[in-house]
Write a protein that binds this DNA or RNA. Structure first.
Length: 990
DNA sequence: GGAAATGTAGTTTTT
DNA sequence: CTACATTTCC
């Protein structure tokens, strides 16, 4: 059997081996799209004899392309992988233009205008033309035009429509001027890269004459130009494979068009379509929620997500009083989960996915305070930081002095006494004489040119120095190796500009952080300098295969290296993780957009309120909904949505996202789960990891305070403000503390459950209210073990019982669906005084369900590779975990994914996959156990810590110690970026 | 004209 | 809370 096909299901195999020339693989999240695509690449190389340099792999985001690279590396080896033409559309286009752009008149050494360049150019154009357009919106408008028009000129040459409004004319004027400005500076903006590359391939199709296959990931995110590019890249061979999922189309704002899927089918009538259906990523519970969300989209063709994992643990919809509390709660919950799952999860298993980048701030602060390592992905780019941008603009000026955008940006940084007025005048002169700013200032300083208003004496002198700097840099950079050009120039500039001193003067407050960022940039350049020398030349990634009769553009290797360095920076959202960063286990904070295609065991989605998701400025609600869907489907085992009831800024009340209507709440619980043995086992199963040992669990448990370990109970479940007293109780006797807590908890629950829901939606009936009002938690699973393991607590059974709150999902009978039906009515019998469930059951919400005392359910038989379940003892602690199945039909059980799918490849797979002598796993047996069927249901009072007699002497790790272990002091980094805790330092001082 | 100081509005998502 | 615009002072 072919190794490539190992571990693929039938549909995936069919896709991989398909002989169809044009293939669409359409599939929901987690169904192995990327895996299929990478396997197909490997298959094409192995069985069709394609050469890697004749195969193009396009992804949409940098992250996706990195991910694909890694996967391919392990599949076909680095030697082959590195020869593939793999990258984002933009980077691939840039490569073609760098090599062949001259064929369509693109001057060599063009640079890429990023958003801020575009914005700066537009701002100046708009000011100069004195029109009333907004630079920002004009930029997006232009981008939209470009994404749709097949080429710019075509768009501009369209006869002005009869009724072209004044606004439209102004816009076209600005558009044209903008293009002129780009051309004058030898710049291409992001869209131009695509358009011009399409132009090139149309004019000279032989550039891609070698291409044997084109593969595209996330096809639903392509725009018109990219579709066109696909056709052009595929050329006459027209062998194309795409994977995609309309439900995950979230780039409409970048003019992505879902219709491209059908357009492609029309263009290639022989397109075969293969659907993948099984989801291998998430628990059924997660899928169920996500499905409910996406199905609110009424125009969407109905598709089913087939779960292959067990139902798992209920997703959480957590309400908190404010965004501050939300951040603190997330931190507390991660801490709790991580500890309570022993060594099953590490920080890298946790992700916080946010709609907007600014939402990360509070969370970053909270994580920082708690000493938890994290990295931020997406949002503000490292290279957009002021101190970095300036340096890069110096490099860009040295590389291409005629780049007006870059020169304008640095001409007065550090201050050279050349103000905005003077600059404007200089630019005007440049524009009039059809030359660049660079030649204007040269002429001016040589006296060949006069300005209306002369520059001041010092300004003139400073300008001369700047010119000298650029010239000297250019002269001296030829003396270093190509690879170290960037490094050399950076150091040169830092020196000449006394950059460190400049930063100190300008940012007295946090110059240290800024300097640290500069050092990080230096490191980056350094890495390139070092890695470059042991490769064969700088441009190993750059090169395109030689094509007969076509000459590639040649240029000096130092220039080339510098240009590549700068281009790669412009086209990269982030720093590559350097080695020591990779080692560090980090919580991921990411925008949802950047999280696409990725997965994490435990996912938090904060700020699920109206205005955030859906975003207040979003024009397409459906796309916002898909965004939430994408975010939710990143989760493998545990999913948390959180919603602060007040926005911290304006102190206004929030409304829960309309994507989470009440009828959906039955799929959620209100607070984080109590970490029972079952919860842990389910996580282990879904992640295909070995369950943690008892020692590890105990260790984790002991690292938490008693309060923390007892459950998600630091905040009231309904999001009402945290009572002040809680701080004060810390030193009081244990038993009283818990009782008081419970009481406050309960009161707050009663109080604001009502308030909140009636506020939420007028006309909501009380019965609906009950649905969400009742989730609580149980201590049963852990408390016994806890009390025995930590004898000093002297908790008696009765006290434990008092604390116990039974998790219970009281779902209104009227609204109950098959999903919920199978599992209700099992609840603890003697909830005791402190039981929330008890309260809700008999309290004001009208549920009359009788709950018989449930005998502990028989423990499901577990496969032998799972640590034998802990022996059940009759603790007389009633517990109920209700649980739901996705449908009445049990989720089909699939063979476990192969090793390649195991996240990071770090985790040890189960014994039978790695070390067990018997590799044969009975196909449908392998993941029974707590998966599927009845094993989902309440598993009764199991203790995580079955063996309490074990020595605990070695387990004195306190939470502080643990954190110290996890993040060595002073070494905590955020993905190479020293983040600025805005005003944090200042606040600390006050 | 340039720079510092004060006042004001405003904050999607990515290449 | 900060980037940006408007003032005021040099």
């Amino acid at each position: 059997m072919d190794a490539i096909l190992k571990g693929l299901n039938a549909a995936q195999s069919a896709a991989v081996t398909s002989t169809a020339p044009v293939l669409q693989v359409l599939a929901p999240p987690g169904s192995g799209k990327t895996k299929t695509l990478t396997a197909r690449v490997a298959y094409l190389l192995a069985h069709h004899g394609y050469q890697p340099w004749n195969v193009i792999c396009c992804t949409f985001t940098i992250k996706a392309s990195r991910e694909m690279r890694t996967r391919l590396k392990s599949l076909i080896g680095e030697r082959l992988e590195s020869k593939l033409l793999l990258g984002t559309f933009h980077s691939i286009c840039r490569r073609y233009l760098a090599n062949y752009g001259y064929l369509i008149g693109i001057p060599k050494g063009f640079q890429i205008a990023d958003s801020s360049d575009s914005l700066a150019i537009l701002t100046r154009v708009i000011k100069r033309l004195n029109v009333s357009l907004e630079p920002r919106s004009t930029r997006t408008r232009i981008s939209r035009c470009k994404a749709k028009a097949q080429n710019v000129d075509e768009h501009l040459q369209q006869p002005p429509r009869k009724k072209a409004s004044a606004d439209e004319q102004e816009f076209l004027q600005v558009y044209e001027e903008y293009q002129n400005a780009l051309a004058a500076s030898n710049l291409l903006d992001y869209d131009d890269l695509l358009i011009r590359c399409a132009d090139l391939l149309r004019a000279r199709p032989e550039c891609v004459g070698n291409v044997e296959a084109v593969l595209i990931d996330e096809f639903q995110d392509t725009n018109t130009v990219q579709l066109e590019l696909m056709k052009l890249l595929a050329g006459k061979n027209r062998r194309v494979t795409i994977v995609g999922d309309p439900d995950q189309s979230i780039y409409g704002f970048r003019s992505a068009e879902i219709q491209n899927l059908t357009r492609m089918q029309r263009y290639y009538p022989d397109t075969s379509v293969i659907h993948l259906e099984e989801n291998y990523r998430s628990s059924a519970a997660v899928l169920c929620c996500a499905q409910e969300v996406i199905e609110q989209d009424t125009v969407r063709p109905n598709k089913r997500l087939k779960a292959t994992h067990c139902y798992g643990t209920f997703p959480v919809l957590r309400r908190l009083p404010s965004a501050h509390d939300e951040a603190k709660w997330i931190v507390a919950e991660i801490k709790r989960m991580k500890a309570m799952t022993g060594n099953l999860t590490t920080f890298s298993d946790y992700a916080i996915l946010i709609r907007s980048a600014h939402l990360s701030l509070l969370i970053e602060n909270a994580l920082g305070k708690a000493g938890m390592p994290y990295r931020m992905v997406g949002g503000y780019r490292f290279f957009d930081r002021d101190e970095i941008r300036t340096l890069l603009d110096y490099l860009r000026t040295i590389s291409q002095p005629n780049n007006n955008a870059a020169l304008s940006a640095i001409i007065n940084v550090p201050s050279r006494k050349i103000g905005e007025e003077s600059l404007k005048e200089l630019l005007r002169l440049a524009d009039e004489s059809g030359t660049s700013l660079w030649s204007v200032i040269q002429k001016y300083t040589q006296g060949d040119l006069t300005m209306k208003k002369k520059l001041s004496r010092p300004a003139e002198q400073n300008l001369c120095k700047l010119i000298a700097l650029v010239k000297e840099a250019k002269k001296r950079m030829v003396n270093v190796t190509a690879e170290s050009t960037a490094k050399f120039l950076l150091e040169f500039c830092l020196n000449k500009l006394s950059y460190k001193e400049y930063l100190q003067g300008k940012h007295a407050g946090d110059h240290e952080n800024r300097w640290a960022n500069v050092e990080e940039l230096l490191n980056q350049a350094n890495d390139i300098a070092e890695s470059g020398s042991n490769r064969n030349g700088v441009d190993s990634e750059e090169s395109l295969p030689e094509i007969e009769g076509l000459d590639k553009q040649q240029s000096d290797s130092n220039d080339e290296a510098l240009a590549t360095f700068l281009a790669n920076i412009t086209l990269s959202s982030d720093l590559q993780a350097t080695e020591d960063n990779q080692e560090q286990e980090c919580i991921t904070i990411s925008t949802i957009h950047s999280a696409k295609g990725l997965e994490w065991p435990i996912v938090f989605i904060p700020a699920v309120y109206e205005g955030s998701i859906p975003h207040s400025r979003a024009e397409d609600t459906d796309e916002e909904r898909r965004l939430l869907y994408v975010a939710m489907t990143r989760a493998q085992a545990l999913l948390y949505l959180t919603c602060p009831l007040r926005q911290s800024r304006s102190d206004t009340e929030t409304t829960l996202s309309s994507f989470l209507p009440l009828k959906l709440h039955r799929h959620f619980v209100q607070i984080g789960p109590v970490v029972t043995d079952k919860v842990v086992r389910d996580i282990a199963l879904i992640l295909r990891r070995s369950p943690p040992s008892e020692e590890e669990l105990l260790k984790g448990l002991k690292s938490l305070s008693e309060r923390e370990s007892s459950g998600d109970n630091l905040w009231p479940a309904d999001g009402s403000a945290k009572p002040k007293q809680w701080w004060d109780f810390e030193d009081e006797a244990t038993s009283t503390r818990h009782k008081v807590d419970l009481n406050t908890d309960r009161q707050h629950n009663i109080h604001s459950n009502r308030m909140h829901y009636s506020d939420l939606k007028a006309g909501t009936t009380m019965t609906e209210t009950t649905m969400t009002g009742s989730s609580s938690f149980s201590l049963a699973g852990i408390s016994v073990g806890f009390s025995t393991a930590a004898r000093h607590l002297e908790l008696t059974q009765t006290q434990v019982q008092d604390e116990m709150i039974c998790r219970e999902r009281e779902i209104t009978t009227s609204k109950r669906t098959t999903v919920a039906k199978s599992r209700r009515g099992k609840t603890k019998a003697s909830g005791g005084q402190g039981s929330l469930a008890n309260f809700f059951a008999h309290g004001s919400f009208g549920s009359t369900t009788e709950r018989p005392a449930s005998k502990p359910l028989p423990e499901p038989e577990l496969p032998s590779y799972i640590n034998a379940p802990l022996k059940q003892e009759d603790h007389n602690i009633p517990t109920v975990f209700t649980s739901h199945k996705l449908s009445t039909k049990p989720a089909s059980l699939k063979r476990p994914q192969p090793l390649a799918e195991i996240p990071n490849g770090k985790r040890k797979p189960y014994g039978f996959l790695s070390s067990s002598p018997s590799r044969e796993v009975p196909p449908d047996q392998s993941f029974k156990g707590s998966c599927g069927g009845d094993t989902n249901r309440a598993t009764g009072p199991e203790s995580i810590l079955s063996s309490t007699s074990k020595s605990t002497t070695t387990m004195h790790t306190t939470s502080v110690d643990m954190l110290r272990l996890q993040s060595a002091p002073g070494r905590r980094k955020t993905y190479g970026v020293r983040r600025m805790m805005n005003g944090w330092e200042n606040r600390k001082n006050h």
